[in-house]
Design a binder for these strands. Structure first.
Length: 123
DNA sequence: CACTTGACAACAA
DNA sequence: CTTGTTGCCAAGT
């Protein structure tokens, strides 16, 4: 059996635990980017976010479908159970997707750094 | 400790 | 559209 982890049970949250928390803050019908999340966390990089999100399929409910790359492309769709699931989920939330890209991406974009309080070192 | 892996970003050609 | 490079850095092996 592959080793499974559940970040919400861990005493010391690691990098991707923070990524999950931020991702869960993305409002319904909005999207965010790997870069925006990385920027909010002020550590790691966009790669870390994608890599972390990949770990989100350990049974945790994370709206990973609301995270796209900087162009608004659904680059993560291939990691969902089905390649169309990410697009369909967004469509159900009212986010139009055309050829694997979010329509009006700039208006749909939700940056954690502009809506969430700064990260508290003491937390 | 050394090495590899990435759902990225930004740029060049 | 494609193929490159460089930077990024936690986690896995």
């Amino acid at each position: 059996m592959a080793k499974k982890i559940n970040p919400f049970q861990k005493k010391n949250p690691s990098y991707y635990d923070k990524v999950f928390e931020v991702t869960r803050q993305i409002p319904y019908g909005r999207v965010s980017t790997y870069g925006a999340i990385a920027d909010y966390l002020a550590l790691g990089s966009a790669r870390m976010v994608g890599w972390a999100l990949n770990k989100s399929f350990y049974g945790i409910q994370v709206p990973a479908h609301r995270v796209v790359n900087r162009k608004g492309e659904l680059s993560g769709r291939i990691h969902f159970p089905t390649p169309t699931m990410m697009e369909e989920l967004l469509t159900q939330e009212g986010v139009e997707v055309y050829q694997h890209k979010v329509v009006d991406f700039n208006e749909r974009l939700w940056k954690p750094a502009e809506h969430l309080p700064p990260v508290n070192p003491e937390d």
